[in-house]
Design a protein around this nucleic acid. Structure first.
Lengths: 338, 338
DNA sequence: TCTGGCACTCGGGCAGCCCGAGTGCCAGCA
DNA sequence: TGCTGGCACTCGGGCTGCCCGAGTGCCAGA
């Protein structure tokens, strides 16, 4: 167990290093922080912290920098979440209030988050599986060509073409549309399959095939779209990464293009609370020198999707966590209103 | 007017510099290319080319590199468009054929283009203004809450919420839906405004307000969506930019996030043929050290949108142009089929 | 008009040097 | 026992001076 003062030293190291990007030495520490002890004492503390693996020296005769383990301790025990200032809060609200549709909400959120944190922002679109159905529409573009449109309570719209095995009359179409809606509107997507299971039976033999194809397409859409979409922004902030950055930045850019990786990353995050993954805690190798701060957001009490930021392990955790949390909250509000 | 041989020297310089990324000297040139003259002669030619502004020296006692003007001449007069190999063509077709919807087509296109050219790819979604209407759908989510869904011939779907000033009956809704569709289906978006102009008059006074709001929303959607959407990919290729690249890459990343800038960039491109903008020819300052190769694509003979790549001015122009042209062609085919 | 020769320039890389920040250790003191 | 001041030591970074070689421009001759 580390003494109170040693924790204080660790905190000071993290803060200084985040600020200056340079290894911090014992003397500088005592000058910038009121630790009440001499550099020599700090040196002893640092030696202990290094033994325990919380800090490291890039090379002899250099200051110390925090390790992933050090940041972890800092986040868990030494740092709170820094709330945003009220002007910032107002700015967020104003900015998000102007959104006209879901794409716009997500787009604005991603820009906002990138700007606030000066890092790369990732926002997941509200998930289909947790959403409820607001409406299902079925259009005949040609006698045997239908279009299926799915509208969610979060405003998301998905459409699919359906090629019917046989021409499908306008009456049958209206019938199917009505029955489909009466069964699924307001229900969760996850429950849809069993709700429509027996629908084909109530149709005439001629139409049954088409109904089945339509339902199959609907269910398929639900499954496919479980691979969620997401939007990223603020990649220009990657240039603030560090000196050695051509090596660091490349795998990060690659990771950001792999939506699968990002979704997995966000997916790993805790259901409700905020999650911080530091450096090697990230499963994906390319992100080993980055930290990911993510949190769920949703229209009600329940999270329908996640958002977060990706930045260097050397980041301002309290500030970033504050911004992420605040933005998630406001987006949730906006979604609830629409 | 430059002699044939001097042009040949310029071509050799461009090719070598693109390959090696290093200033090329007279001796190396004569060794790698069969120019049939001595280094001394080449030096004289180089001096002329430099006077004319086609090449430059980073510093005395270094080789020459092409200027923007040099690349321009190279593209205009010295280089053709390099056709893809037939395995490449087959690969493109196979890759694009698997697409399930418009988002997927665009997504695959962007990945494909980035991979083929090893540069940053930009693909614009098919434009609404040049598209035609396939269907307009109108749904009542609540008595005074409507949803307007617009479906284009390219498979794009746009939706908007409409708050009606007064409750709107199911009959009136069906009526409006039918009339709207009979007037605009198959017409170009640009023609829609005047086609629906007199619609409100044929409705009862009670409903007229709502009809007007719906139409207003429809027209607004057309205008708003003239700010097109686009998708980018291959940003990881930016790391291959050059040595000095932290300075170069930042403004490029910023430009790539400014959709407006990109759209303008693509928009400037020629209607039909391929357009190459080299270095300072790009209006946007951040892209002054990049070249943009863009071309229109479309389902018929007509271009409905554009796509292209952004890369360093030092790029393989013939190869890039070949890839861009080929991809545009296949995407056009795919769109025509769907 | 091309060519070979020659003197010149200058950036990059290498070796050597110094400087200073930072360390670990130790003896002394509360 | 724990903190402190002092001291010797280490080592990376930056500066200087140097050389080398690629590349140039010019010129006289074929």
């Amino acid at each position: 167990m580390l003494s109170e003062r040693r924790l204080e030293v660790l905190r000071a190291i993290v803060q200084d290093y985040v600020g200056t990007e340079e290894p911090v030495g014992s003397k500088a520490l005592t000058e910038r922080h009121k630790l009440g002890v001499s550099p020599a004492t700090v040196r002893n503390d640092m030696a202990v912290l290094e033994d325990e693996g919380y800090i490291a020296q890039p090379h002899t005769s250099a200051g110390r920098i925090p390790t992933d383990k050090g940041y972890r301790l800092f986040v868990d025990r030494l740092a709170g979440v820094k709330p945003l200032s009220s002007p910032e809060r107002r700015a967020i609200q104003n900015f998000l209030d102007g959104a006209v549709d879901l794409d716009d909400v997500v787009g604005r959120t991603v820009r906002l988050l990138a700007q606030l944190t000066r890092q790369v922002a990732v926002v997941q679109y509200p998930s289909l599986t947790r959403s409820t159905v607001r409406h299902v529409e079925l259009l005949a573009l040609a006698p045997a060509r239908l279009m299926l449109v799915l509208i969610t309570d979060t405003g998301r719209v998905e459409q699919r073409m359906v090629d019917a095995p046989a021409p499908f009359g306008e009456a049958a179409l209206a019938d199917l549309r009505a029955r489909l809606n009466s069964r699924v509107v307001g229900r969760r997507f996850a429950d849809v399959p069993q709700l429509v299971q027996d629908l084909p039976e109530s149709f005439e033999t001629d139409d049954r095939g088409t109904v089945q194809v339509v339902l199959a397409t609907l269910l398929e859409t639900l499954v496919e779209e479980t691979e969620e979409r997401l939007m990223i922004g603020g990649t220009a902030n990657l240039t603030r990464f560090g000196h050695d950055f051509p090596l660091t930045i490349r795998p990060v850019l690659e990771a950001l293009e792999e939506q699968v990786v990002l979704l997995k990353l966000l997916g790993e995050a805790n259901e409700s609370g905020m999650t911080v993954r530091i450096g090697h805690e990230n499963a994906y190798e390319g992100l080993n020198s980055t930290s990911v701060v993510s949190v769920g957001y949703g229209s009600g009490g329940e999270a329908v999707a996640k958002l977060g930021v990706v930045g260097p392990t050397r980041m301002d955790y309290p500030g970033t966590m504050g911004a992420v949390r605040a933005v998630a909250r406001y987006v949730g509000q906006i979604l609830a209103e629409s």
